[in-house]
Design a protein around this nucleic acid. Sequence first.
DNA 1: TGTTGTTAGTTACAAAATCAACTATTAACA
DNA 2: TGTTAATAGTTGATTTTGTAACTAACAACA
Lengths: 147, 147
Amino acid sequence: MTEKHEFDLQNFLPYLLNQAAEESSLAFQQVYKDRYGMLRTEWRVLFHLGIYGRMTAKEIGQRSKMHKTKISRAVARLGERRFLTREQDDRDRRLEYLELTNLGLTAYRDLLGVAQTYDAKLSAGLSAEEDAVLRRALRKLAGFDAD
Amino acid sequence: MTEKHEFDLQNFLPYLLNQAAEESSLAFQQVYKDRYGMLRTEWRVLFHLGIYGRMTAKEIGQRSKMHKTKISRAVARLGERRFLTREQDDRDRRLEYLELTNLGLTAYRDLLGVAQTYDAKLSAGLSAEEDAVLRRALRKLAGFDAD
DNA sequence: TGTTGTTAGTTACAAAATCAACTATTAACA
DNA sequence: TGTTAATAGTTGATTTTGTAACTAACAACA
C-alpha cells in the first residue's frame, strides 16, 4: 500500500526555503535587534550603504528588490537615529543621496563582523561542496544571476 | 588596491535564503490568494491537514514551527470558511482535532497539484545534482533533520 | 511656454504579524 | 481533596507590512 501522492511539505521548495530562511535568520536578527533596535529592512539598508557606499533609495531598491515604501521607512528611521545623512541632489531634487554617518559606519562594521562569523557558522554544518552548490542554487532562485 | 573585507550581501546566507524564499514564493502565493483568498499560514495549515490527516493545532505547531497564535487565527478562518471541522477531545477538552471537510480536501488537492507543478518548475532551473544538494542543505538549515 | 507623462519618494489606511496577557482545562503532588 | 503548576488555545494591544493614492520634481514635445 504505497502512498499515491508522496508529497512532503518539507520538500516543497518555497516552504523549505522559508523555513530555512527563518531558522537561519533568528540568531542574527537577535543581534541587530537587541544591539541597535533595528528591523530587517533597516540592517539591509545599512549594509547596502556600508558595502556599496553613498547611494539613493532608488538604487537600494534596484539592488535589494525591497519595495520603495519599506526602504523609505527604513531610511527615515535610520536618519532619525543618526545612522545616515540625507543630501538632496542639486541637479535633480527628487533624488536624495544617503550616506552612513560615523555612527552608522560603526554599527555597520560591528554587524558586518557578526554577519561574517555567523555565516561561517552556518556553513560549518555543510561540506565545502554542499556550501558552494547551495549558494549557487540560491542565487539562481533569488534571481541574482540574471540581474 | 584590493578591497579589505570582500563581503557581498548577496552571499550572506540569511539574506540569500530570504531573497530566494520570497522570490520563489511569489507565484504560488498568487494562486492560493487569488483562488481561495488564503494567507500563507492558511495554506500551510491546510497542507498539514491534507498531508498528515486529522491532528490538533499543537501538532501543527510542532511540525511547522509556526507560532500558536498564527495557527489559531488560521484555523479560525479556515473553520469559518468551512475548509475544516473542529472536534473537541472528550478525554482532554483542551484539545481540538482538526480535519478537512470535503471543501477543504478539494482545495488542498487543487493546491497540491499547483504546488507539485510549481516545485518542478523551480527545480527545472537546476541540475539534478544541484537540486539534491540544495534540498539536503536546506533541510539541515531548517532544522528538519534533527527533529 | 504649457500640457501630459514619468519618476523619486512619502503618507494614509487597511491587513497582518507579534507579544503578552488571558481562559479553560488537566496534571502533580502535598 | 486542595493547591500550585503546566498546557492548549484565544484574545487584545501594539508594531510592522502592504496597497494605493499622493506630492514634488523633472522630461518630452506640441
